[in-house]
Design a protein around this nucleic acid. Sequence first.
DNA 1: TTTTGTGAAAATCTTCACAGCG
DNA 2: CGCTGTGAAGATTTTCACAAAA
Lengths: 223, 223
Amino acid sequence: MKKLMLSPPTLFRLTVCYQVTMRAGEAGFENISSAYLADFLKVDETLIRKDMSLVGIKGKPKVGYPTKQIISILEEIIGISQHTDGILIGCGSLGSALLRYSGFAKYGLRIAAAFDIDHTKVGQRIGDYLVLPIEKGKSIIETFKVQVAIFAVPAGTAQELADWVVKRGIKAIWNFAPVQLKVPKGIIVRNENLAVGLAQLIHQVHTLAAKPKSKPKLETRKK
Amino acid sequence: MKKLMLSPPTLFRLTVCYQVTMRAGEAGFENISSAYLADFLKVDETLIRKDMSLVGIKGKPKVGYPTKQIISILEEIIGISQHTDGILIGCGSLGSALLRYSGFAKYGLRIAAAFDIDHTKVGQRIGDYLVLPIEKGKSIIETFKVQVAIFAVPAGTAQELADWVVKRGIKAIWNFAPVQLKVPKGIIVRNENLAVGLAQLIHQVHTLAAKPKSKPKLETRKK
DNA sequence: TTTTGTGAAAATCTTCACAGCG
DNA sequence: CGCTGTGAAGATTTTCACAAAA
C-alpha cells in the first residue's frame, strides 16, 4: 500500500477528476485525455498529467488515460474503497436534505444514526433514518466507532457541539453551520461554509460587473 | 471607489474574517487582533495583517483592528452593501432547505423566485416563496435583471439547465448539483460540490488514521 | 501528428525578520 | 512589552518547453 502525501490542490483536482471520470465512464468513454479533464477545472493540461503521474495513473500517448484505471486508483487513493461510519446531528431542513442525499454511500460513508436536540423531532423518520435524541449519541459513537460527525445545526450551537463530539472520540467534523469551528490538533474539520461561499460569489459578480473588459491570462492559446 | 484585485486565497480569508468578526462584534468585542483571526484560519498572523493592509483596514499596535472598520470595509469589498437578485431552481429537499436559509439576505442576495420543472411541486409554498413553473423563468430573469441562479437540481439536468439560464442572461451560477459545470467565458460558476467535499474529508480521515505520528510543520512556536 | 511525461523556469503564496508605535 | 506593518527570503504550485511513444 502506497503512502503518498498529496498537496491540497492536487487532492482537490483528483477528487474532481474522479467525479468527472465517473460520469464519462457511465457515458461510455473508455479513455479520457488530460485536456478533457483540465477543461472542467480550468487549469493547464500539464497539471493534470502531473497529478496523474503522482498517483501512478499511466496514460497512453494519442489515447489518454483508461477510465477504469482512473476510477480504481482514485478510489483507493481517496479512501472510498473502505467504509467510514458517520452520524448526522441536526435534523432541520438542511439536515433532512443531507439525510435524503444518496451520494454518501457512493463515497463509502455510512450514516449510523441521525440526532437532534429538539424532542419534537425525535422519533420522526427522515429518509431511511429515525431521528434519535442527542443523549444517545455517546453510546452510538462508541458502539459503531464512528469517526465522522456531520453538523447541520444552528451557528450558535456548533462550537459547543464540536467540543462535545471531540470529547466522545469523533475524529472528523463535516460542518455545515455558518461558523468557523476550532478544534484540538489532530481533529479534522471541513467547514462547508455556505455563507463564505456566497460571499465569494457575490464578490465575483460585482467585480465582473465593474470591469467586463479584461483577459488577464489569455495566452493559453495553442501557440 | 477602489478597484483592487484580490487573489483567491486572500478573498477566501477575508470572507472568513468577515464572518468571524461579525460574531465577535455581536459578542461585544470592539477590537480584534490578527492572532485571533489567524487562529480560526490556521494561518500565520502576518498573513492576516497583509490581507488587512491590502484592503485598507488599519489596526493599532497593542489594540488590534476595530471591529466596525473590518465589517464596514469588508462589506464594501465583498459587495454585500449592494443588492444582488437571484433565483433558485430545483425545489427538492436541498432547494427547500436553501429557501429556508435566512443567511442570503445578510449577504445582499434577494431571491426573486423559486422554480421547479416538476408540476406537482409548482404552486407549493416553501418558506416565503411560491414555487413557479420553470417556464416562467425567462420573463422573471429579464424583469428582475436577475444575475445569479442557484441550482439545486439533479446531476443529470444541471448542465442543460446551465446552458439555458446562460442563454437567458444569467451572469453567475451557484451550483449545488454534484457535477462540474462548463459555461462560456465570462460566466461565473461556483461549484458547491458536496461530493467533492466529502471525498476530501474521507481522504483526510483515512490518511490521519494511517499515520497518526507526524507534525510536518510544527515550528510555528513563539520562538 | 496527437497526447503523455518531466525537468527547468516562472509565478504565486506564505513565512521570516525586524522596524515602529502606543 | 504587545501588536501592527512591510520588505526580503522561502516554500509551494503552476506553466513552459520539449522529449518520447503509439
